[in-house]
Design a binder for these strands. Structure first.
Lengths: 155, 155
DNA sequence: AATGAAATTTATGCCGG
DNA sequence: CCGGCATAAATTTCATT
Protein backbone atom coordinates (compact mmCIF):
# COMPACT_ATOMS: atom_id res chain seq x y z
CA UNK A 1 0.00 0.00 0.00
CA UNK A 2 1.16 3.47 -0.84
CA UNK A 3 0.72 6.41 1.52
CA UNK A 4 0.48 9.91 0.18
CA UNK A 5 1.30 13.09 2.05
CA UNK A 6 -2.29 13.48 3.19
CA UNK A 7 -2.35 9.99 4.67
CA UNK A 8 0.83 10.71 6.57
CA UNK A 9 -0.41 13.96 7.97
CA UNK A 10 -3.66 12.35 9.04
CA UNK A 11 -1.82 9.52 10.74
CA UNK A 12 0.51 11.89 12.48
CA UNK A 13 -2.43 13.66 14.08
CA UNK A 14 -4.61 10.64 14.63
CA UNK A 15 -2.06 8.39 16.31
CA UNK A 16 -1.61 10.81 19.22
CA UNK A 17 -5.30 11.14 19.99
CA UNK A 18 -7.87 8.94 18.32
CA UNK A 19 -10.67 10.98 19.87
CA UNK A 20 -10.12 14.09 17.86
CA UNK A 21 -13.03 14.37 15.42
CA UNK A 22 -12.37 13.72 11.76
CA UNK A 23 -13.66 17.16 11.03
CA UNK A 24 -10.83 18.75 13.00
CA UNK A 25 -8.27 16.54 11.29
CA UNK A 26 -9.82 17.49 7.99
CA UNK A 27 -9.56 21.18 8.81
CA UNK A 28 -5.89 20.72 9.64
CA UNK A 29 -4.98 18.88 6.46
CA UNK A 30 -7.46 20.54 4.10
CA UNK A 31 -9.94 17.72 3.60
CA UNK A 32 -13.57 17.05 4.43
CA UNK A 33 -14.47 14.90 7.43
CA UNK A 34 -15.80 12.22 5.11
CA UNK A 35 -12.56 12.08 3.16
CA UNK A 36 -10.58 11.73 6.39
CA UNK A 37 -12.77 8.84 7.50
CA UNK A 38 -12.47 7.14 4.15
CA UNK A 39 -8.73 7.27 4.46
CA UNK A 40 -8.73 6.09 8.06
CA UNK A 41 -10.87 3.14 7.06
CA UNK A 42 -8.51 2.25 4.25
CA UNK A 43 -5.53 2.58 6.58
CA UNK A 44 -7.17 0.25 9.08
CA UNK A 45 -7.99 -2.33 6.44
CA UNK A 46 -4.50 -2.14 5.00
CA UNK A 47 -3.02 -2.75 8.46
CA UNK A 48 -1.20 0.56 8.59
CA UNK A 49 -3.26 1.29 11.67
CA UNK A 50 -2.57 -1.82 13.70
CA UNK A 51 -4.74 -1.05 16.71
CA UNK A 52 -6.53 1.73 18.52
CA UNK A 53 -5.76 1.43 22.18
CA UNK A 54 -5.85 3.27 25.48
CA UNK A 55 -2.73 3.87 27.50
CA UNK A 56 -3.39 3.40 31.18
CA UNK A 57 -1.60 4.67 34.24
CA UNK A 58 0.24 1.69 35.70
CA UNK A 59 0.40 3.16 39.18
CA UNK A 60 -3.34 3.75 39.35
CA UNK A 61 -3.91 0.10 38.46
CA UNK A 62 -1.55 -1.12 41.14
CA UNK A 63 1.11 -2.09 38.63
CA UNK A 64 4.00 -0.62 40.52
CA UNK A 65 6.94 -2.43 38.95
CA UNK A 66 8.21 -2.13 35.41
CA UNK A 67 11.32 -4.06 34.52
CA UNK A 68 13.44 -4.23 31.43
CA UNK A 69 14.82 -7.70 31.09
CA UNK A 70 17.67 -8.89 28.91
CA UNK A 71 17.71 -12.53 28.03
CA UNK A 72 20.55 -14.58 26.66
CA UNK A 73 19.57 -17.90 25.13
CA UNK A 74 21.63 -21.04 24.78
CA UNK A 75 20.11 -22.30 21.56
CA UNK A 76 19.53 -19.33 19.28
CA UNK A 77 18.23 -21.34 16.34
CA UNK A 78 15.00 -20.08 14.82
CA UNK A 79 13.00 -22.98 16.17
CA UNK A 80 14.18 -22.59 19.76
CA UNK A 81 14.02 -18.79 19.70
CA UNK A 82 10.48 -18.82 18.35
CA UNK A 83 9.37 -21.24 21.01
CA UNK A 84 10.78 -18.96 23.67
CA UNK A 85 9.29 -15.88 22.10
CA UNK A 86 5.83 -17.37 21.64
CA UNK A 87 5.66 -18.41 25.26
CA UNK A 88 6.64 -14.95 26.46
CA UNK A 89 4.36 -13.06 24.13
CA UNK A 90 1.44 -15.05 25.48
CA UNK A 91 2.12 -13.81 29.01
CA UNK A 92 0.13 -10.77 30.00
CA UNK A 93 2.96 -9.42 32.15
CA UNK A 94 5.12 -9.12 29.04
CA UNK A 95 4.08 -5.80 27.62
CA UNK A 96 6.79 -5.77 24.98
CA UNK A 97 9.13 -8.37 23.53
CA UNK A 98 11.95 -7.76 21.05
CA UNK A 99 14.41 -10.16 19.51
CA UNK A 100 17.63 -8.22 19.04
CA UNK A 101 21.07 -8.43 17.50
CA UNK A 102 24.12 -8.16 19.69
CA UNK A 103 25.34 -9.54 22.97
CA UNK A 104 21.85 -10.41 24.13
CA UNK A 105 19.01 -12.17 22.34
CA UNK A 106 15.78 -10.74 23.74
CA UNK A 107 14.69 -7.58 25.47
CA UNK A 108 11.45 -7.61 27.42
CA UNK A 109 9.39 -4.95 29.10
CA UNK A 110 7.61 -6.61 31.99
CA UNK A 111 4.92 -4.86 34.04
CA UNK A 112 3.72 -6.39 37.31
CA UNK A 113 2.10 -5.31 40.58
CA UNK A 114 5.16 -5.79 42.78
CA UNK A 115 8.49 -7.52 43.11
CA UNK A 116 6.86 -10.68 44.36
CA UNK A 117 4.94 -10.90 41.11
CA UNK A 118 8.11 -10.22 39.19
CA UNK A 119 9.83 -13.00 41.05
CA UNK A 120 6.99 -15.35 40.18
CA UNK A 121 7.21 -14.33 36.54
CA UNK A 122 10.94 -15.03 36.45
CA UNK A 123 10.44 -18.40 38.05
CA UNK A 124 7.74 -19.32 35.53
CA UNK A 125 9.27 -18.03 32.36
CA UNK A 126 12.99 -17.63 32.75
CA UNK A 127 14.49 -19.71 35.53
CA UNK A 128 12.37 -22.64 34.53
CA UNK A 129 13.41 -22.51 30.90
CA UNK A 130 16.32 -24.75 30.02
CA UNK A 131 17.12 -22.59 27.00
CA UNK A 132 17.70 -19.42 29.04
CA UNK A 133 21.40 -19.09 29.68
CA UNK A 134 21.09 -15.93 31.73
CA UNK A 135 18.99 -12.83 32.18
CA UNK A 136 19.49 -9.39 33.65
CA UNK A 137 16.81 -7.24 35.25
CA UNK A 138 16.74 -3.46 35.14
CA UNK A 139 14.01 -2.09 37.36
CA UNK A 140 12.54 1.10 35.95
CA UNK A 141 12.88 4.06 38.30
CA UNK A 142 11.52 6.70 35.95
CA UNK A 143 9.31 5.91 32.98
CA UNK A 144 9.93 9.21 31.24
CA UNK A 145 8.20 8.10 28.03
CA UNK A 146 6.22 4.91 27.85
CA UNK A 147 4.65 4.83 24.44
CA UNK A 148 5.32 7.92 22.46
CA UNK A 149 3.88 8.17 19.01
CA UNK A 150 5.96 7.53 15.95
CA UNK A 151 7.75 10.18 13.98
CA UNK A 152 5.67 9.75 10.83
CA UNK A 153 7.92 10.67 7.90
CA UNK A 154 6.11 13.24 5.79
CA UNK A 155 8.17 12.50 2.71
CA UNK B 1 -8.82 7.65 42.98
CA UNK B 2 -10.30 4.28 43.74
CA UNK B 3 -11.14 1.74 41.05
CA UNK B 4 -13.82 -0.83 41.65
CA UNK B 5 -14.15 -4.16 39.91
CA UNK B 6 -16.39 -2.69 37.22
CA UNK B 7 -13.84 0.00 36.38
CA UNK B 8 -11.14 -2.60 36.04
CA UNK B 9 -13.17 -4.82 33.80
CA UNK B 10 -14.11 -1.88 31.62
CA UNK B 11 -10.50 -0.79 31.35
CA UNK B 12 -9.38 -4.29 30.52
CA UNK B 13 -11.71 -4.37 27.54
CA UNK B 14 -11.34 -0.77 26.50
CA UNK B 15 -7.55 -0.54 26.48
CA UNK B 16 -7.24 -3.20 23.78
CA UNK B 17 -9.69 -1.59 21.38
CA UNK B 18 -11.08 1.85 21.98
CA UNK B 19 -13.47 1.45 19.08
CA UNK B 20 -15.67 -1.17 20.69
CA UNK B 21 -19.01 0.54 21.47
CA UNK B 22 -19.83 1.30 25.09
CA UNK B 23 -22.95 -0.75 24.67
CA UNK B 24 -20.91 -3.89 24.05
CA UNK B 25 -18.68 -3.18 27.02
CA UNK B 26 -21.78 -2.60 29.09
CA UNK B 27 -23.25 -5.91 27.98
CA UNK B 28 -20.03 -7.66 28.99
CA UNK B 29 -19.83 -6.14 32.45
CA UNK B 30 -23.54 -5.75 33.20
CA UNK B 31 -23.97 -1.99 32.86
CA UNK B 32 -25.78 0.39 30.54
CA UNK B 33 -23.88 2.14 27.79
CA UNK B 34 -24.35 5.47 29.54
CA UNK B 35 -22.89 4.11 32.77
CA UNK B 36 -19.85 2.82 30.91
CA UNK B 37 -19.32 6.21 29.33
CA UNK B 38 -19.66 8.02 32.60
CA UNK B 39 -16.98 5.77 34.06
CA UNK B 40 -14.70 6.20 31.07
CA UNK B 41 -15.03 9.94 31.37
CA UNK B 42 -14.17 9.81 35.07
CA UNK B 43 -11.20 7.57 34.31
CA UNK B 44 -9.95 10.03 31.70
CA UNK B 45 -10.31 13.00 34.01
CA UNK B 46 -8.59 11.15 36.83
CA UNK B 47 -5.69 10.34 34.52
CA UNK B 48 -6.13 6.59 34.77
CA UNK B 49 -6.62 6.66 31.01
CA UNK B 50 -3.52 8.57 29.97
CA UNK B 51 -4.13 8.67 26.23
CA UNK B 52 -6.11 7.08 23.45
CA UNK B 53 -3.77 6.38 20.60
CA UNK B 54 -3.36 4.45 17.39
CA UNK B 55 -0.56 1.97 16.93
CA UNK B 56 0.87 2.20 13.47
CA UNK B 57 2.84 -0.24 11.38
CA UNK B 58 6.42 1.02 11.36
CA UNK B 59 7.29 -0.75 8.14
CA UNK B 60 4.40 0.76 6.24
CA UNK B 61 5.58 4.21 7.30
CA UNK B 62 9.11 3.56 6.17
CA UNK B 63 10.41 3.28 9.72
CA UNK B 64 12.54 0.25 9.16
CA UNK B 65 14.89 0.40 12.12
CA UNK B 66 14.04 -0.04 15.76
CA UNK B 67 16.90 0.04 18.22
CA UNK B 68 17.10 -0.52 21.94
CA UNK B 69 19.80 1.68 23.35
CA UNK B 70 21.48 1.45 26.73
CA UNK B 71 23.06 4.59 28.04
CA UNK B 72 25.57 4.97 30.82
CA UNK B 73 25.93 8.49 32.20
CA UNK B 74 28.94 10.05 33.88
CA UNK B 75 27.08 12.36 36.21
CA UNK B 76 24.03 10.53 37.52
CA UNK B 77 22.87 13.32 39.80
CA UNK B 78 19.21 14.23 39.52
CA UNK B 79 19.94 17.51 37.81
CA UNK B 80 22.20 16.04 35.14
CA UNK B 81 20.03 12.98 34.60
CA UNK B 82 16.89 15.08 34.17
CA UNK B 83 18.61 17.31 31.68
CA UNK B 84 19.60 14.27 29.66
CA UNK B 85 16.17 12.72 29.93
CA UNK B 86 14.30 15.88 28.97
CA UNK B 87 16.37 16.34 25.86
CA UNK B 88 15.76 12.77 24.76
CA UNK B 89 12.07 12.74 25.50
CA UNK B 90 11.66 15.77 23.27
CA UNK B 91 13.09 13.86 20.30
CA UNK B 92 10.49 12.27 18.10
CA UNK B 93 12.76 9.31 17.30
CA UNK B 94 12.72 8.34 20.97
CA UNK B 95 9.56 6.34 21.28
CA UNK B 96 10.28 5.23 24.83
CA UNK B 97 12.68 6.35 27.53
CA UNK B 98 13.24 4.69 30.90
CA UNK B 99 15.58 5.58 33.72
CA UNK B 100 16.63 2.32 35.31
CA UNK B 101 18.51 0.87 38.25
CA UNK B 102 21.52 -1.30 37.67
CA UNK B 103 24.61 -1.28 35.54
CA UNK B 104 23.12 1.17 33.03
CA UNK B 105 21.22 4.40 33.58
CA UNK B 106 18.79 4.75 30.69
CA UNK B 107 17.10 2.44 28.21
CA UNK B 108 15.68 3.93 25.04
CA UNK B 109 13.55 2.57 22.25
CA UNK B 110 14.46 4.51 19.13
CA UNK B 111 12.54 4.20 15.86
CA UNK B 112 13.97 5.65 12.66
CA UNK B 113 13.72 5.15 8.90
CA UNK B 114 17.15 3.60 8.44
CA UNK B 115 20.60 3.21 9.87
CA UNK B 116 21.69 6.54 8.50
CA UNK B 117 18.97 8.22 10.52
CA UNK B 118 20.02 6.22 13.54
CA UNK B 119 23.57 7.36 13.08
CA UNK B 120 22.40 10.96 12.89
CA UNK B 121 20.37 10.50 16.04
CA UNK B 122 23.37 9.11 17.91
CA UNK B 123 25.55 11.96 16.75
CA UNK B 124 22.98 14.52 17.88
CA UNK B 125 21.95 13.07 21.20
CA UNK B 126 24.56 10.68 22.46
CA UNK B 127 28.00 11.23 20.98
CA UNK B 128 27.60 14.95 21.29
CA UNK B 129 26.62 14.81 24.95
CA UNK B 130 29.52 15.23 27.37
CA UNK B 131 27.58 13.43 30.09
CA UNK B 132 27.20 10.19 28.11
CA UNK B 133 29.95 7.84 29.18
CA UNK B 134 28.96 5.09 26.78
CA UNK B 135 26.01 3.57 25.01
CA UNK B 136 25.18 0.24 23.45
CA UNK B 137 22.85 -0.35 20.52
CA UNK B 138 20.72 -3.43 20.05
CA UNK B 139 19.04 -3.44 16.67
CA UNK B 140 15.65 -5.11 16.80
CA UNK B 141 15.36 -8.09 14.46
CA UNK B 142 11.93 -9.24 15.54
CA UNK B 143 9.42 -6.96 17.27
CA UNK B 144 7.30 -9.78 18.61
CA UNK B 145 5.21 -7.50 20.81
CA UNK B 146 5.43 -3.75 20.53
CA UNK B 147 2.84 -2.35 22.87
CA UNK B 148 0.75 -5.00 24.45
CA UNK B 149 -2.00 -3.96 26.81
CA UNK B 150 -1.55 -4.11 30.54
CA UNK B 151 -2.61 -7.00 32.70
CA UNK B 152 -5.25 -5.07 34.59
CA UNK B 153 -5.48 -6.63 38.07
CA UNK B 154 -9.13 -7.44 38.74
CA UNK B 155 -8.65 -7.49 42.50
C1' DA C 1 -24.87 6.02 41.49
C1' DA C 2 -27.47 3.70 37.81
C1' DT C 3 -31.16 3.85 34.30
C1' DG C 4 -33.84 5.50 30.29
C1' DA C 5 -34.88 8.85 26.97
C1' DA C 6 -33.89 13.02 24.65
C1' DA C 7 -30.40 16.00 22.47
C1' DT C 8 -26.01 16.62 20.46
C1' DT C 9 -22.11 15.16 18.22
C1' DT C 10 -19.65 12.05 15.37
C1' DA C 11 -19.28 8.59 11.90
C1' DT C 12 -20.89 6.14 7.67
C1' DG C 13 -22.96 5.49 3.02
C1' DC C 14 -24.46 7.21 -1.22
C1' DC C 15 -24.50 10.31 -5.13
C1' DG C 16 -23.00 13.86 -8.28
C1' DG C 17 -18.86 16.12 -9.98
C1' DC D 1 -10.86 10.69 -5.31
C1' DC D 2 -13.26 14.62 -3.53
C1' DG D 3 -17.37 17.29 -1.23
C1' DG D 4 -22.04 17.43 0.43
C1' DC D 5 -26.01 15.59 2.09
C1' DA D 6 -28.80 11.94 4.30
C1' DT D 7 -28.76 8.34 7.47
C1' DA D 8 -27.21 5.75 11.27
C1' DA D 9 -24.69 5.22 15.36
C1' DA D 10 -22.53 6.68 19.41
C1' DT D 11 -21.79 9.95 23.13
C1' DT D 12 -23.45 13.35 26.37
C1' DT D 13 -26.87 15.49 29.13
C1' DC D 14 -30.80 15.45 32.00
C1' DA D 15 -34.63 13.83 34.72
C1' DT D 16 -35.95 10.00 37.55
C1' DT D 17 -35.54 6.16 40.82
Amino acid sequence: MTLDTLDRRILDLYQRDTRVPSERIGAAVGLSAAAVQRRLKRLREAGVIVAETAQLDCRALGLGVTAIVHVDLIDESARAAHAFRDRLVARSEVQQCYGVAGSIDYVLVVIVPDLAAYDAFCADCLLHDANVRSFTTHVVLDAAKRGGGLAVPQA
